[in-house]
């Protein structure tokens, strides 16, 4: 399949008064046309910063230091601001995490929905309004015409998230970036939103990057998953690789932290002890080593290289080394 987006060795840092915070430290992944890719990791692992780097919406202190992000041949890191304006919200759009604060409270929903249409598609107001009604219907908001002239505070959380999705879809983007689109919502509404995204992927073949810390959310929607930790991608593969053949100690830990859906017997959870690393002084070796039960001496000294477990499935963990001790539940092992 054709690659829509190819991110290569991307580094992003924030220059703060206490020093350089290396939020993203060299990540490489790609997205195919019409595919949903998951980016999983806990808060502070750099998943949102990666996406903000792609769209160039970082705070003033943030800067992409190195690397490239090819979107249909155009490098998003290098192109001019003028060109970026044409891509952002048009070819690539983003759904933000918090539907309660991402809409502008002083403009009507219609106003905010029509903005990308007027700007990018140069529609007349009349046409834009018609399209906005269609969009609201597409995302399942009843009485769309009436709702257009209402303000965000008149919408519930689930409805606002739908409006955000409608807005992101306004210009039929090639790539939709969804940053924790459902964490603020109830499970029933979450299921509705995920189904909606799935439908859109199949219907208008939009590619999706789904950012989340909830493994349950990616298991359904995404075909491939990247697991991030401490500013690096520590494991990538198909969802079956990640769930049934986890080959990084962190992935194994994440899967052990949630109750097993298959058993009705009460098992004790196996949490990952400790805290994520401080990216002001990122560790030299594997960022996960201080929290890892299986850490060896080499893990603290040297960042492990990627071990190829099978085609497209790779993990940066020394446990895959032929000389590493055997670990329960760990099936990995591959070539460096």
């Amino acid at each position: 399949m054709e690659k829509l987006l190819k991110v290569n060795n991307l580094h992003t840092s924030f220059y703060t008064h206490v020093g350089e915070v290396m939020a993203v430290r060299g990540i490489t992944f790609d997205v195919e046309k019409g595919e949903a890719v998951g980016l999983v990791g806990e808060s502070g692992c750099g998943k949102s910063v990666t996406m903000m780097s792609l769209l160039r919406i970082l705070a003033d202190t943030g800067k992409v230091k190195e690397g490239s992000a090819l979107f249909e041949g155009r490098d998003l890191v290098k192109i001019s601001n003028q060109e970026m304006l044409k891509i952002r919200g048009n070819e690539i759009s983003m759904i933000f995490q918090d539907p309660m604060t991402s809409l502008n409270p002083v403009f009507t929903i219609g106003n905010q929905l029509m903005e990308p249409l007027l700007r990018h598609k140069r529609m007349t107001k009349h046409d834009a309004r018609k399209k906005a009604v269609e969009l609201l219907k597409l995302v399942g908001i009843p009485e769309a015409e009436k709702r257009l002239s209402q303000y965000p505070h008149e919408f519930s959380g689930g409805m606002r998230q739908r409006v955000m999705i409608a807005m992101a879809l306004a210009c039929d983007p090639k790539l939709l970036i969804a940053d924790e689109p459902t964490t603020a919502l109830d499970v029933t509404i979450q299921a509705q939103i995920l189904d909606l995204m799935k439908e859109l992927k199949n219907k208008i073949s939009t590619s999706i990057i789904l950012i989340t810390h909830d493994l349950g959310v990616v298991a359904d929607l995404c075909s491939r998953i990247n697991v991030m930790y401490g500013g690096k991608i520590v494991e990538q593969g198909t969802k079956r690789d990640i769930f049934y053949n986890p080959s990084h100690a962190y992935t194994l830990g994440l899967l052990g932290s949630v109750p097993n859906p298959k058993t009705l017997i009460k098992e004790r959870l196996k949490p990952i002890d400790g805290q994520p690393p401080d990216l002001l002084k990122p560790p030299e070796g594997c960022p996960f080593a201080p929290r890892c039960k299986y850490a060896m001496r080499i893990c603290e000294i040297k960042m492990p290289p990627y071990f190829e477990i099978s085609e497209g499935h790779r993990a940066a963990c020394y446990l895959n080394h032929p000389y590493a001790p055997k670990v329960e539940g760990f099936k990995g092992r591959g070539r460096e």
Partner: peptide, 25 residues
């Protein structure tokens, strides 16, 4: 409906199971 909406962290189970979608809020 509530139970069927829980996202399951298991690809095979997620694909198999039938969701009861609750209309409205």
């Amino acid at each position: 409906a509530l139970l069927s909406a829980i996202p399951v962290p298991d690809p095979d189970m997620a694909e198999e199971r039938k969701r009861i979608i609750l209309e409205g809020e």
